[in-house]
């Protein structure tokens, strides 16, 4: 446990030193405040629209941004140590491969969690203080749910980045594959799902289709933050499928948790079999 914390602590202090943490937090806070203030611009006025609308807009942006940030943060976790020549040395220390990987995860995970908490937390407080007649209780609950789910989404992409990082032997390859992961989950997956839906003209098993959403962490995240607020009538695209899912919010939370646990376990297994 001590070694895990030693590794995590170095990652955390690295992201403080290279100002990643503070940069991500500022980006998040700026986005959140910007969206809160100009959220009603579409309806022709400047001002706070509503808590659900703000969270929905934030989540839509988060879907693009969070996976990208997480992948960038984590893609070189192992392959970077190898290219830097420190992996071999680390492995001669009383430190197992699992401890190294989980230490990295703890460090990167905490970096992202702190940045999210600070960035969106500050924005939440600003909204609560500055917007008149906002229901603070509802805002707090929504913000908390948003922050926790954003963190979990980030963790799942950190874990996915590790799967790449323990497998390849060159950093540029890892970066390329990380981008491919982003492209697949954020852009391609929904298109494929919609395409399947349309092409099969409803022949496709309607029971099965909603479950397919669980195969994409960004869709789970979207369901958690958007569906819980809206009437299903407002939902568009593949999200309308989510309304048919019989598992409810707790099932979605569990699915999002599994989305970082399973890739992380996979990365661990791959790392153990890697030749150093």
């Amino acid at each position: 446990m001590n070694s895990i914390w030693t590794i995590a602590r170095k990652e955390l202090s690295d992201s403080l030193r290279n100002r990643w943490l503070i940069a991500i937090a500022i980006v998040f806070a700026t986005l959140a405040v910007g969206i809160a203030w100009f959220g009603a611009a579409a309806s022709g006025q400047v001002g706070y629209a509503s808590t659900p609308a703000t969270i929905a807009s934030l989540a839509s942006l988060g879907i693009f941004l969070i996976p990208l940030i997480a992948l960038l943060l984590a893609y070189d976790a192992i392959v970077g140590e190898e290219e830097g020549g420190t992996l071999l040395l680390l492995m001669t220390y009383p430190l197992s491969r699992g401890q190294l990987l989980f230490g990295k995860f703890l460090g990167h995970g905490l970096t992202l969690a702190l940045a999210t908490l600070i960035g969106f937390g500050v924005a939440g407080v600003a909204i609560a203080l500055l917007v008149e007649d906002v229901a603070v209780g509802a805002l707090a609950v929504a913000m908390l749910r948003f922050i926790v789910s954003t963190t979990l989404l980030g963790w799942s992409f950190i874990a996915l980045a590790y799967v790449v990082s323990v497998r390849v032997s060159e950093k540029p390859v890892a970066a390329g594959l990380a981008l491919a992961i982003w492209f697949f989950f954020v852009l391609i997956f929904d298109l494929m799902l919609l395409g399947t839906l349309v092409a099969s003209q409803g022949e496709f098993n309607p029971e099965l289709l909603p479950w397919l959403l669980l195969l994409n962490p960004t869709d789970i995240y979207r369901l958690l933050n958007i569906v819980t607020f809206s009437d299903s009538a407002q939902l568009s695209g593949v999200l309308s499928l989510g309304a048919d899912l019989p598992i409810g919010p707790s099932g979605l939370w569990l699915a999002l948790v599994l989305w970082f646990v399973i890739p992380l376990t996979g990365a661990w297994a791959l790392f153990r079999s890697r030749r150093i």
Partner: peptide
């Protein structure tokens, strides 16, 4: 190790 390397930053 031969050609020992460390974290440059």
């Amino acid at each position: 190790p031969e050609n020992v390397m460390f974290y440059p930053q």
